[in-house]
Design a protein around this nucleic acid. Structure first.
Lengths: 340, 340
DNA sequence: GCAAGTCCTGGAAACGTTTCCAGTAACGTT
DNA sequence: AACGTTACTGGAAACGTTTCCAGGACTTGC
């Protein structure tokens, strides 16, 4: 491998000069600059990232810590994020975590050991204490969830999410406005202070604002966002328990799809016998039968917000901030006016 | 940040001794070992990866180069791979490429600059020449495709894939055995020597083995694996062109799902008016209406094979090898005997 | 003609490890 | 008692950069 010394030697200049050329420092004559660049090209010189990182006591790597879910929504989000990050010359490192692991601890450890310059948290809970948040001493952004519980100062963290509670409320409102009153919910009630909890809250809020009593028998708990088998079984259990509901609100598209299958297998047609509304807005959901009525998360915008924010934080061009996007209703064939 | 020197100082030993303890070298007394380990714990010492990589002239990072597609199949595969890689103490770096980019060139560049110890290629073409393959001077594995064209020596590369041609043949055989003879194909004919070409070959082979003439009018070219809108339109075009077919073979589950929607929108029911078979075996496809008849790629095994192979190559415990898995037919509701 | 400033360059320290080499002490062997 | 072994340890070079500091060669202003 050719290194910076080889270049220096061949050009008859000092190592430091080569370094200056490579890092676009101003104080170098046009002549030496081009001489060095020519040598770099000829010798196919590729700088050694470890050496640079060592002396700079930093790296060019942003970690993406993904938790639990393997939701197609995440796949798209990751794609957008990756594109932006690499476009800006940074590198993205992928880490997957189980639901049981503590993302902040793992993030802190990684940040030190690998000299990360930033962390993107994807999925998981958000019940951090201010003290816990301080564990992470590099810029970080929490994607897809935000501190709606209000116990954190806005300057203490960055986040990108939709207004989950609002989205759920909107989904349920849609159903109510079509005459539905017995509305079941399909949710993953794994952790507290999670997306799931927020959407569940929104569901309850919407019911109460319409004077509909909350019925715990209409809650189907899947325990997962991604395991469609479990979701299917949870829906089947729900039907077995009380099949008087006329609509289901699923907190994720994939849940709705599994639920529709379960309903169909139990002889309930969608939307004739049961309406279904979800949150996510996957492209896929436009191509199911029936197509899904769902609240679309602006995944492209959200991905951009994530990468833009983390890069601004890293380059010290911005402060911590919270993005809250509004999901848009995408009407599909999975809902119908009751008795309609 | 505390470093190895701090530990050495506090313990009254040399830096080299601390290093030996940290790297589990044998020649160190039990007493000093425990003394050092205690200090490491107390000072919360975390070794600097850059420094280690610099002197070792290597890193602990394996890159995953994903091309084009954002197929849910890949999402699952990536998850399995990531788990295994981190379990073994390595780090996974994620790079996404456009279809237009040359993965080998990019891989070679990355390998040098970031001192990668291995590369996993995911998706894309496989028409490399032996010379091109030599560009990559680190262990690498090509996931989801293999050199079925036979112009490469088996010792020159590693790969993990299903027998794509065989899978396609099996899919079409299934349709023929149910009496279908006018079988359309839905494929992405972007690159040569790709998965797409192999499955297309299998389709043609199967037809000819049953004495069915190949009809180019029954080929719907999507130009993409992932853009469901494009797939939908390709299917609509197909129907508009010649709707006499009684079955569709889609080379991916997602394509089949979009196709079923297109068929339905044109008044063709699946499976009554048209049968559909695909390849992938996504979990999702068990929950569509109708459920998909599809050839399941053993994603878990494939992911394990990828990570196992790359790690063995890195640790010099194995040679280049090619894995070819056999997909299994998962019967669904999307096929029916003709006239049945 | 000289001081002050500008522009460019070279030398060398520093970053935090690993690893080679040499060296010491204790120990058993002859 | 001399010597080879063994078990452990310390010192120092090396990895390939960046960056600080100093200095030389010009230019400019007086």
């Amino acid at each position: 491998m050719t290194n910076i010394k080889d270049i220096a030697q061949r050009c008859g200049v000092a190592i430091s000069t080569v370094s200056r050329v490579l890092n676009d420092h101003p104080d170098v004559s046009e002549e030496t600059r081009s001489k060095v660049l020519r040598a770099v090209a000829e010798l196919r010189y590729i700088p050694n990232a470890s050496a640079r990182n060592l002396v700079r006591t930093t790296s060019d790597t942003i970690a993406l810590l993904v938790k639990g879910v393997s939701n197609p929504f995440f796949a798209k989000l990751i794609k957008v994020i990756e594109r932006e990050i690499t476009l800006r010359g940074y590198t993205l490192e992928l880490h997957h975590m189980d639901t049981s692991e503590d993302e902040l601890l793992i993030g802190a450890q990684l940040a030190n050991e690998r000299k990360l310059i930033g962390i993107l948290f994807l999925g998981g809970r958000f019940n951090y204490s201010p003290g816990e948040l301080k564990l992470i001493n590099v810029p970080s952004v929490f994607c897809t969830y935000t501190n709606t519980f209000g116990d954190l100062d806005a300057s203490a963290y960055s986040s990108v999410a939709i207004d989950d509670k609002q989205a759920a409320r909107f989904a349920v409102d849609t159903l109510v406005s079509l005459g539905h009153r017995k509305i079941a919910i399909l949710a993953d009630n794994e952790y507290d202070k999670s997306i799931s909890e927020l959407r569940f809250q929104g569901y309850k809020d919407a019911l109460s604002s319409h004077g509909i009593p909350f019925d715990p028998r209409l809650v189907a708990c899947t325990g997962t966002f991604s395991d469609m088998g479990a979701i299917y079984r949870a829906t089947s259990d729900l039907i077995a328990r009380d099949s008087s509901f006329t609509a289901i609100f699923a907190i994720a598209d994939l849940m709705a799809i599994a639920a529709i299958k379960a309903l169909s297998d139990h002889g309930k047609r969608v939307p004739e016998d049961c309406s279904v509304v979800a949150i996510d807005g996957l492209e896929l959901s436009e191509y199911t039968l029936p197509t899904l009525t769902t609240l679309v998360q602006p995944v492209e915008d959200m991905g951009l917000a994530c990468s833009k924010t983390i890069i601004e934080l890293i380059e010290k061009r911005g402060e911590n901030r919270q993005f809250t996007f509004n999901p848009m209703l995408r009407p599909g064939g999975s809902v119908r006016r009751i008795g309609g």
